[in-house]
Design a binder for these strands. Structure first.
Length: 596
RNA sequence: GGUCCUGUAGCUCAACUGGAUAGAGCAACUGCCUUCUAAGCAGUAGGUUUCAGGUUCGAGUCCUGACAGGAUCACCA
C-alpha cells in the first residue's frame, strides 16, 4: 500500500475515533506541501468543518495529533490556517529510497498485454520535412515510448501520403523542367530535389493563373483551366489507370523522397514498426460504406452520394462517398482504421495529427463508434498546435518554412560553437566531440518542442535560436554529466554505495528528502503522461528533478563528508537521480552524455 | 455566422485537475569557482491570471456573457 493511502486511511479512522463520523478513505486526498511550508503532504481541513464542528486550526491539530500518535511514519505536523502539513520520518525516507535503489527497472510498468498503435509523421512525398513535422515526430515517438513504459505493447506506424494531385504537381514540373536531374547529378537530397519541383510547379501555375485572369477570365475558372493544373489532373487519372510511364516516374521520384526521409528520420532518432501507404489504402473503405448503409448509419442522397448524419451528436452531415462512387478522405480513413485493427488487433489507437484536423477526427471516431467497431472506444486524436514563426504561419509552397534538415544542422553548429566557447572538450577525441554536439543539439531541439503542452500552438524564433541554459534539454543533460563525474570518482576510490552501506544515516537534509520524494514520484508521472498523452508532463518532472539535484549538489558535500554512511547515501542518491534522468530523457527520445 | 481550441510577468512556459502569499526559465540587476563540472547555485526586481458578472468556506481553474487570436465548417487530402 502506498504512503498516501496509508495516511488517508489513518485520517478516516481519525474522523471515526475523534468525531464518530465515518468517511470513505478513497474520498480523501492529499496534496504535496508547498515548498515554503514544513512538511511533505498536506490535508485540507475546510471541507470537513461540518464534521469536526470546530475551527480549521483546532480540527487540524486534533487530526494531526491522532496521526502522529497512531502512524509511525508521521514524525511531526503543523497547521497553518486550515492546512494540515504532515512530515514523515527519516526512517520512512531511507526505507523508501532503499526500495527505489533496489528495484530493477524503476520506471517500467508490468505488461498490460494490450496493444496500442501510435500513428505519426505521415508525410507527403512531394516535399521535405519541416519544423511542424519535427513537433509531430518528436511527439509521436515520445508518446510511443511513454505508453511502452506504461506497459502497453506499442506499434509505431507511419501512413505515407504518397499519391494524389499534390504528388502529381511535382511530377509534372519535373517532367517539364527536370532534364533528367537526379539527386546524384544535383547533389541534392532526394526529398529536397522533389520539393524543388513542387515549388517550381506552384510558381509556374501562379503565373498561368495570373495571365488568364489578365485576359479576362474569372479567378476560379482560371485556377481550373491553367495548363499545368490540367496536366496534373490528367496525370492523376493516368496514375489511377495504372499507366506504366506515369507509375515509373512516380516510383522514381518517390524513391528519392524515401531515401531523403530515411536520412532525416535517422538524424531525428525516430523510427516505425509499420508503414502504410496511401497508394495502397486509398480505395479501402467502400465496403464499410455499404455496411453503414445496411446498418442505417449512412444514407444515400438522390444523386447517389452517401452521407453520415451526425446531427443527433451535435454535428452536421458528412460525405463518405461521392456521387460517382469514388472515395473521399473519410472513406479511406475508415478503411485504414479497419486495416490497422485487422493487422494488429489493437485496442487503442493514437493519431498524432495537427489540430486543423480536429473536426475530421471527431467525425471519423463518431462514425466508427456508430458502426460498432470493437476498437471504437480506444481512438484518440493527439491534436497538437501549429508551430508559428514570428512572421506568421509556415507555407511550403511559398518557401517560408524552416526545413527540418537545415534546422538540425544549425543546432549542431550552435552546440559546437557554444561548447567550444565554454572550453569543455578537453580530452575529447574529434569523434567524441562531434557525437556530443549531436546529443546536445537534438536534446535542445526535442526538449524545446516537447516541453509545451501539445495542444497549444507555439512560437519558434529562428533568430533567437534555442537556448542551452535554464529550462532546456542541455540543462538536464548537464545534470546527468555532473553525476556521471561523481560516479566515476566513486568507482575510482572503490566506494560502496549499496543500500546496506547507509543504514546508519539519520537526519536527512531537506533537499535529500525532496529528491527521494521526486524519485518516488517518477512512476506517477509516467502514468499521468501516458493517460494524458503528454510528454510535457515528463519534461516538467525532469526539470524539477534536475533543479532539485543541482541545489543538493551546491549545498551538500559528498567526498569531503567524513561519515561513511552519509557519503554512501549521497552517492547512491546521485546514482539514482542519474538513472531516472536517463530513463526519463529516454522516454522523450533524448540521449544523455557522460561528460559535457 | 455555427462549432472547437487558446488567452497567466517584457518574452517562452508551469500551476498536482477547486486550495495557502499564482511558480520556473529567458532578458535586467547583485553575489558565489583554491573543495565532487559555474551549461550551475543563491538572491533582487517584475502580476488587477484579457474584461464583466455568477456558483462557495475558497476560482487562473467551474458556469454565463463580452473581447482578442487561431483552426474548422469542400462531391480537396
Amino acid at each position: 500500500m502506498d504512503i498516501q493511502q496509508t495516511i488517508t486511511n489513518a485520517i478516516a479512522s481519525a474522523f471515526q475515533a475523534l468525531f464518530d463520523h465515518s468517511v470513505d478513505p478513497d474520498s480523501l486526498s492529499l496534496q504535496a506541501t508547498r515548498k515554503e511550508f514544513e512538511g511533505t503532504y498536506t490535508f485540507v481541513m475546510f471541507p470537513f468543518l461540518k464534521i469536526t464542528k470546530s475551527s480549521p486550526e483546532a480540527s487540524g491539530e486534533k487530526i494531526g495529533a491522532y496521526l502522529q500518535e497512531n502512524l509511525s511514519v508521521v514524525s511531526s505536523f503543523n497547521v497553518v490556517k486550515g492546512f494540515l502539513n504532515i512530515s514523515l520520518s527519516d526512517t520512512y525516507w531511507l526505507d523508501l529510497f532503499q526500495q527505489l535503489a533496489t528495484i530493477e527497472g524503476h520506471g517500467k510498468f508490468p505488461p498490460k498485454n494490450r496493444k496500442v498503435m501510435v500513428e505519426y509523421s505521415s508525410p507527403n512525398t512531394n516535399k521535405p520535412l519541416h519544423l511542424g513535422h519535427l513537433r509531430n515526430n518528436f511527439l509521436g515517438f515520445a508518446v510511443a515510448r511513454i505508453l511502452e513504459a506504461y506497459g502497453y505493447e506499442v506499434i509505431k506506424s507511419n501512413l505515407v501520403n504518397d499519391r494524389g494531385i499534390h504528388i502529381c504537381k511535382s511530377m509534372v514540373a519535373y517532367e517539364k523542367l527536370g532534364n533528367g536531374e537526379t539527386p546524384e547529378s544535383s547533389g541534392l537530397k532526394g526529398d529536397h530535389l522533389v520539393g524543388k519541383y513542387y515549388v517550381l510547379f506552384d510558381q509556374e501555375y501562379k503565373k498561368q493563373v495570373k495571365e488568364l485572369t489578365l485576359s479576362g477570365m474569372e479567378q476560379e475558372a482560371a485556377k481550373k483551366t491553367a495548363p499545368w493544373m490540367k496536366e496534373a489532373q490528367e496525370m492523376l487519372v493516368r496514375w489511377e489507370a495504372g499507366d506504366q510511364t506515369t507509375i515509373d516516374l512516380w516510383k522514381k521520384l518517390n524513391g528519392w523522397v524515401y531515401q531523403g526521409f530515411e536520412e532525416t528520420y535517422r538524424k531525428m532518432g525516430v523510427d516505425f514498426d509499420q508503414y502504410y501507404y496511401e497508394s495502397d489504402t486509398y480505395l479501402l473503405g467502400k465496403d464499410i460504406v455499404a455496411e453503414g448503409l445496411n446498418k442505417g448509419v449512412f444514407f444515400k442522397k438522390e444523386n447517389g452520394s452517401v452521407w453520415a448524419d451526425l446531427s443527433d451528436e451535435g454535428l452536421d452531415e458528412k460525405l463518405v462517398l461521392r456521387a460517382d462512387g469514388t472515395s473521399v478522405y473519410m472513406t479511406q480513413d475508415m478503411g485504414t482504421a479497419d486495416l490497422k485493427y485487422k493487422d494488429h488487433r489493437i485496442e487503442k489507437s493514437v493519431y498524432v495529427v495537427g489540430n486543423e484536423q480536429d473536426y475530421h477526427f471527431e467525425v471519423l471516431f463518431k462514425i466508427l463508434r456508430k458502426l460498432g467497431r470493437p476498437y471504437g472506444n480506444g481512438l484518440y486524436h493527439l491534436s497538437y498546435g501549429m508551430v508559428d514563426l514570428p512572421s506568421g504561419k509556415m507555407k511550403s509552397r511559398e518557401g517560408t518554412v524552416v526545413d527540418a534538415d537545415d534546422l538540425m544542422a544549425e543546432m549542431v553548429a550552435t552546440a559546437r560553437e557554444h561548447t567550444q566557447e565554454l572550453g569543455k572538450i578537453e580530452g575529447f577525441s574529434h569523434e567524441e566531440a562531434e557525437a556530443l554536439y549531436q546529443i546536445l543539439a537534438l536534446g535542445a531541439l526535442k526538449y524545446f518542442l516537447l516541453k509545451v503542452d501539445p495542444k497549444k500552438r507555439m512560437l519558434f524564433n529562428p533568430q533567437e535560436s534555442i537556448e542551452f541554459q535554464g529550462n532546456t534539454g542541455p540543462f538536464i543533460q548537464y545534470t546527468h554529466a555532473r553525476i556521471s563525474a561523481i560516479l566515476r570518482k566513486a568507482a575510482q576510490i572503490d566506494l560502496d554505495y549499496s543500500p546496506n552501506q547507509f543504514q546508519a544515516y539519520k537526519q536527512l537534509e531537506k533537499t535529500e528528502q525532496s529528491l527521494v520524494f521526486l524519485l518516488a514520484d517518477y512512476e506517477n508521472k509516467i502514468a499521468l503522461a501516458a493517460e494524458e498523452l503528454s510528454p510535457a508532463v515528463i519534461t516538467q518532472y525532469l526539470f524539477d528533478l534536475a533543479k532539485e539535484y543541482n541545489r543538493f549538489y551546491a549545498e551538500l558535500p559528498i567526498f569531503s563528508e567524513t561519515k561513511a554512511e552519509v557519503q554512501a547515501f549521497r552517492v547512491g542518491l546521485s546514482a539514482q537521480v542519474a538513472k531516472t534522468i536517463k530513463s526519463g530523457m529516454g522516454l522523450l527520445g533524448i540521449d544523455v552524455p557522460q561528460k559535457m
